[in-house]
Amino acid sequence: AGLEKQLAIELKVKQGAENMIQTYSNGSTKDRKLLLTAQQMLQDSKTKIDIIRMQLRRALQ
């Protein structure tokens, strides 16, 4: 149950990062740093999601 909860949280983080990227990508240059931060968050989240999914698969075997 813990892994499913972690996965749900990470999927929400990923969605939030995608929303932030959309918001900041057509903003001013001061938003550039926020855009880069959001892109890093998205990448980190995708990595965590992959790891959690692997752990889930392993647990189900």
Results as ranks from 00 to 15, higher is better:
residue 58 R to F: 06
residue 27 G to F: 05
residue 56 L to N: 01
residue 59 A to D: 10
residue 26 N to F: 03
residue 30 K to D: 02
residue 54 M to N: 11
residue 8 A to D: 10
residue 43 Q to D: 06
residue 28 S to E: 05
residue 36 L to F: 11
residue 28 S to R: 10
residue 21 I to L: 10
residue 7 L to Q: 11
residue 55 Q to S: 10
residue 10 E to V: 02
residue 41 M to H: 06
residue 61 Q to N: 09
residue 33 K to F: 02
residue 19 N to W: 02
residue 5 K to W: 02
residue 25 S to N: 12
residue 53 R to F: 11
residue 22 Q to D: 11
residue 3 L to E: 14
residue 7 L to M: 11
residue 19 N to T: 07
residue 44 D to Y: 13
residue 61 Q to W: 15
residue 20 M to H: 10
residue 45 S to G: 09
residue 60 L to K: 15
residue 33 K to S: 10
residue 16 G to R: 15
residue 36 L to C: 04
residue 60 L to N: 14
residue 12 K to P: 03
residue 46 K to W: 04
residue 10 E to Y: 05
residue 58 R to I: 03
residue 49 I to D: 02
residue 41 M to R: 04
residue 57 R to Q: 10
residue 2 G to V: 09
residue 32 R to V: 03
residue 4 E to S: 05
residue 15 Q to G: 07
residue 49 I to F: 06
residue 41 M to S: 02
residue 49 I to C: 01
residue 33 K to I: 00
residue 35 L to S: 03
residue 46 K to L: 08
residue 37 T to D: 07
residue 6 Q to T: 07
residue 8 A to M: 06
residue 1 A to L: 00
residue 42 L to F: 08
residue 29 T to P: 10
residue 31 D to G: 15
residue 53 R to T: 11
residue 21 I to E: 08
residue 25 S to Y: 02
residue 28 S to G: 10
residue 56 L to K: 04
residue 42 L to K: 01
residue 56 L to S: 03
residue 36 L to R: 14
residue 24 Y to G: 14
residue 19 N to V: 10
residue 16 G to P: 09
residue 10 E to M: 05
residue 11 L to P: 12
residue 6 Q to R: 11
residue 55 Q to M: 06
residue 8 A to P: 05
residue 29 T to W: 10
residue 54 M to E: 09
residue 3 L to S: 12
residue 52 I to M: 10
residue 43 Q to Y: 03
residue 49 I to R: 00
residue 15 Q to P: 15
residue 51 I to C: 13
residue 16 G to I: 07
residue 7 L to G: 12
residue 15 Q to V: 06
residue 36 L to V: 09
residue 12 K to W: 01
residue 1 A to R: 14
residue 19 N to M: 07
residue 53 R to K: 14
residue 30 K to W: 09
residue 17 A to R: 08
residue 47 T to A: 14
residue 61 Q to D: 01
residue 16 G to L: 13
residue 30 K to F: 04
residue 57 R to E: 02
residue 29 T to R: 08
residue 51 I to K: 15
residue 53 R to Y: 04
residue 18 E to H: 02
residue 8 A to L: 08
residue 46 K to E: 02
residue 48 K to I: 01
residue 57 R to D: 02
residue 16 G to M: 14
residue 42 L to C: 02
residue 29 T to C: 04
residue 44 D to A: 15
residue 51 I to V: 13
residue 60 L to I: 08
residue 45 S to K: 02
residue 1 A to G: 15
residue 3 L to M: 09
residue 52 I to E: 15
residue 26 N to K: 13
residue 14 K to L: 07
residue 57 R to Y: 03
residue 37 T to L: 12
residue 39 Q to H: 04
residue 27 G to S: 12
residue 9 I to W: 03
residue 7 L to A: 07
residue 3 L to F: 08
residue 10 E to T: 04
residue 17 A to N: 06
residue 52 I to C: 08
residue 33 K to Q: 06
residue 53 R to E: 02
residue 41 M to I: 14
residue 44 D to S: 15
residue 46 K to N: 09
residue 5 K to N: 05
residue 52 I to D: 02
residue 6 Q to I: 11
residue 31 D to Y: 13
residue 38 A to D: 00
residue 51 I to Q: 12
residue 58 R to L: 03
residue 33 K to T: 11
residue 46 K to T: 05
residue 56 L to Y: 00
residue 49 I to M: 01
residue 27 G to V: 06
residue 23 T to I: 10
residue 48 K to P: 00
residue 43 Q to I: 04
residue 32 R to W: 03
residue 34 L to K: 12
residue 41 M to E: 02
residue 14 K to F: 09
residue 20 M to C: 01
residue 33 K to W: 03
residue 39 Q to S: 04
residue 41 M to C: 05
residue 12 K to F: 01
residue 13 V to F: 03
residue 44 D to R: 15
residue 49 I to T: 00
residue 9 I to H: 14
residue 2 G to Y: 10
residue 61 Q to V: 03
residue 14 K to T: 11
residue 7 L to I: 10
residue 59 A to I: 06
residue 25 S to T: 11
residue 11 L to F: 03
residue 10 E to K: 10
residue 30 K to C: 02
residue 16 G to W: 05
residue 18 E to Y: 05
residue 46 K to H: 01
residue 19 N to D: 07
residue 48 K to R: 09
residue 33 K to H: 03
residue 37 T to S: 12
residue 32 R to N: 11
residue 37 T to W: 15
residue 22 Q to M: 07
residue 25 S to C: 04
residue 23 T to R: 14
residue 10 E to W: 14
residue 61 Q to F: 07
residue 13 V to T: 11
residue 45 S to V: 15
